[in-house]
Structure formats: structure tokens, C-alpha cells
Design a protein around this nucleic acid. Sequence first.
DNA 1: AAAATCACCTGTCCGC
DNA 2: TGCGGACAGGTGATTT
Length: 262
Amino acid sequence: MPELPEVETYKRIIETTCLMKRIIRIEISNTKILQQISPNIIIKQLFNNMILKVDRHGKYLFLKTKSNQWLVLHFGMTGYVTYFNSKEESSSHIRLLVEFENGYHLAYHNQRLFGKIWLINNKGYFIKKLHIGQDALQMTVDNFSDIIRNHKMMIKSLLMNQSLIAGIGNIYADEILFQSNVHPKTLCHRLSKTKRRNIYHNMIDILQTAIDARADFSLYPVSFLIPYREKNGMCPKDGRPLQAIKINGRTSYFCLNHQKLK
DNA sequence: AAAATCACCTGTCCGC
DNA sequence: TGCGGACAGGTGATTT
């Protein structure tokens, strides 16, 4: 699930529920997700601690603790968080569970185990070390345009490249190119300045719209491609069948009628 | 330099 | 009904 709008939504969930509450219990049910740290250390560090704030960079969440560390969450393909009281919430895929002194829980769910959790001291160094680029929503139009101009790869590959632009994944890349009327295989250096700027503005609009809808697809505008991204899907603009091709091993959906390869 | 391929995991859906 | 394969909103290493 989680691209930038989903992760931003998780950020807001945590911000509005979990800040400044003492942690009284930590449960870790999968150690594969933990990166270079043992469950015991995480438990020891989080116990009696609290979350002071939450930052997001691309698809990563950074939970700052009172002890001045960062609990870093990445969600992979299937991760999400929930906040709940008591045991009514039972999921077999909760990998990290934090209980606060008010009796509520923050759960990190992850079915496919592609997610990762770190506990680090230096956020800036972490972002640099993992080669995570500038967050998509923090970019300026000139900044974004220059990145496109300076590469020869396919535009969809660039949009999904986390070291160049952080936060866009397979489905929002499709959405951005669909709204921009650009074929996903268009080579970056062939795009005009006008087109580059147009893609930028669509990117910002789409991400912001998705965030405002709390990444709930059912609340997205009818003009969005996302709900139609499926086998035998139809273009929401003209009703024609969507094309499905593979780019970098990921399925790209687009409408050949108004996303032509020039 | 950039695309394709594979690997990592679990679960579901589709076709024979 | 059952089994096998393809596929899923991600990332990283390796090969072409």
C-alpha cells in the first residue's frame, strides 16, 4: 500500500494519537524486519520512553523519542499502522506493538515482511547513507525540472527512483503520467520544459489530493486513474481499454489514446 | 547509464 | 475442487 500519501496518512495518525504518551510495553513478533538491532535492545530503548514527534521523508517515517533517537519505519508493499484500544484489534501480521500508559496501542502491521524497522541516532546521516533523494513534496519546480532534464531514462523509472525523488511508487507514478498525458516510456531528455513543469504540478496536485483524502481511494476524484488500474480497466477520460506494460518489472497502466510515445 | 532479472515474503486470484 | 502460476502500491543486488 504505502507510497508518499499513505505514509503521510500514517504520520498523521501517529501524530494525533501517540505523542507524549509513556510507553509501558513493547511486543516484537518478527525479527526479520529489524535492521541491525536486536528485539531486546529496541524493547529496552523504548520502554518508559515516549514519541515526541514524527517526520516523514519519502516513504520513511521517523519517530523521534524522548531519548533523542529515531525509530524508523518503512512499510514495504503491505505495511500500515493502526491505533486502537484493548484486544478487539487482532491481526496476525502485527510485527511491532507498542502499548501506552493510557491502554492504547500503536501497531505496525506487515504481511509480506518487506518492511523494515531501524533505531538510529542521526536522521540526516541515515537518509544520506541510504541514498534517499529529496522528498517529492519538498521539491521546487526548477529543481524537479532539472532532474528530468539531466537524465535519459524512461520518465516512469525516474519518478520511481527513490534516490532522485523520494516518495513516488508504481501507482502514483502512473497517475502523474496519466494526468500529464505522457507515455511512461518517454525518455526524460525528450521532454520539453513546459512538459516537465506540467508533470511537476500534476505530481504536487495528485499527492496533495491523495493526502487530503487520507489515501482512501474511494474518496479520490472520478478523474483519477488509480481506481481503474486493473486488468481490463477502462480509461476514466475516454472509456477506452487501458494498456498494461512492464517497466522495471512493475506493471504500468496508461491510455494509449492520450499518452502517446513521441 | 539504465533496463531487465532475480530475490526477498505472504496471500489471493485466475485458468486449466 | 485442486493445483500451479501469476501477480501484488517496495527495494537491493546482479546481470545484460
